[in-house]
Amino acid sequence: MDLARHSDLTEKEESQILLAYVPLVKRIVKQLAFQASTILDIHDIEQIALIGLLEAIRRYGKPDERFGGYAKLRIRGAILDELRNKDWRPRGLRQKTHRINDAVRALSRKLGREPFADEITQSLGLGMEEYQQYLLLESAKNMQSLDELLTLGTEADALISQGPEDQLINTDSMKHALATLEKREQIILALYYQHDLSLKEIALTLDLTEARICQINKIITEKIKFFYRNEH
């Protein structure tokens, strides 16, 4: 993580901005607690998030109306990077990951739809807890992929220097991408990105299991990836 200063902000100004955006940090930590709290202490998650915010401030400079969105990407990215870098999966699950992925694809072809959690666990003889751990890892990967896709395939830093014309093209392109999603999938994205709900809160809101929300997030990611592959 690059914490070198790329702006003219003083330490005092940085501290003031950090304090002003602490509520945003707390919202994102709460949002990602479902994925991260199984392997990271909540205090550690908050520290990682604050470092992500500090990096955002030093790269961006004085906040304007676009800084909040940029900071969200940086903070979420810092937490998800740490989660992905931790080899937290039980050894048996690490060995089964590819088999689970293959089984999910095979079941999808057989059923003509994305299989439900109980169908996957029955097919593989997995316990629900073990499958839940697998989903946590997949969820972390998918949420980071979604963050990258929703910045239209660019690095978050590119948002700083995009001109109005690029922003207009990107916004129009994303609208077309989101239009390919089903209504429920669009609602999940809105609850996550606009209302900062956690996966657990989204599951409660939509009367679905957390495992099902993880599955749908994976579907959303694949649909948006497919759109951009075919658009370009």
Rank of each mutant, 00 (worst) to 15 (best):
L3P: 11
S7Q: 02
D8L: 13
S15I: 09
I17W: 01
L18G: 05
A20K: 14
Y21A: 04
Y21D: 09
L24K: 03
L24Y: 02
K26N: 15
K30M: 01
A33T: 15
A33I: 14
F34L: 14
Q35F: 12
S37T: 13
T38F: 00
I39G: 07
I39H: 13
I42A: 13
E46K: 04
A49I: 06
L50S: 05
I51Y: 10
I51G: 09
I51K: 10
G52Q: 11
L54H: 12
L54G: 01
E55Y: 10
R58A: 04
R59K: 15
R59D: 13
R59I: 05
K62D: 06
P63C: 02
E65C: 10
R66P: 11
F67V: 10
G68Y: 11
G69Q: 04
G69E: 04
A71L: 04
L73C: 07
I75A: 09
G77L: 00
G77I: 01
I79Y: 06
L80D: 03
L80Y: 03
D81Q: 10
L83R: 09
R84V: 01
N85V: 12
K86D: 11
W88L: 10
R91M: 15
G92T: 15
K96Q: 15
R99W: 14
D102R: 01
R105Q: 15
R105Y: 13
R105N: 13
A106L: 03
L107K: 05
L107Y: 06
L107F: 08
L111N: 03
E114W: 12
A117K: 12
D118N: 02
I120G: 00
T121L: 07
Q122H: 15
L124I: 00
G125M: 02
L126F: 13
G127L: 09
M128E: 11
M128N: 08
E129W: 13
E129D: 14
Y131S: 05
Q132V: 08
Q132P: 11
Q133K: 12
Q133N: 09
Y134L: 10
L135P: 06
L135D: 06
L136I: 14
L137D: 06
S139T: 12
N142V: 12
Q144V: 05
S145T: 10
E148H: 05
E148V: 09
L149Q: 01
L150N: 03
G153F: 08
G153S: 02
A156I: 03
L159E: 09
S161K: 07
Q162M: 08
G163P: 11
G163F: 04
D166N: 00
I169T: 07
N170S: 08
D172I: 12
D172E: 15
S173D: 11
S173H: 05
A177Y: 01
L178W: 00
L181V: 02
E182G: 03
E182D: 08
E182M: 04
R184Y: 05
I187T: 14
I188L: 01
Y192K: 00
Y192M: 06
Y192W: 02
H195D: 10
H195K: 15
L197F: 08
S198W: 05
L199M: 15
K200I: 11
I202Q: 01
A203W: 06
T205Q: 14
T209R: 07
I213Q: 05
C214Q: 01
C214P: 07
Q215R: 06
K218S: 08
E222C: 00
E222N: 06
K223Y: 08
K225L: 11
F226T: 12
R229P: 04
R229C: 04
